[in-house]
Amino acid sequence: MHNKIKIERAILNITQDELAQKIGVSRQTINSIEANRYVPSTVLALKLSKLFKKPVNDFFELSEDD
């Protein structure tokens, strides 16, 4: 799974810490998601979708090994 969370965060001009606070997780979790080390749950993906005002598919995409 690849994601464009970092780009979306840059568009909103917010830090990892601010994004983490907005969706109720730790900064380390945001860091892990951005680094593709952790795949978030549907609930978290939908929270991000609501915040970015974009469908989940716009910033999450399956990789070849998924």
Binding site: A20, G24, V25, S26, Q28, T29, S32, Y38, P40, S41, V43, L44
Partner: peptide
Amino acid sequence: KDKIEDEMT
């Protein structure tokens, strides 16, 4: 619990 307990922890 951790200070911030989320799905990853």
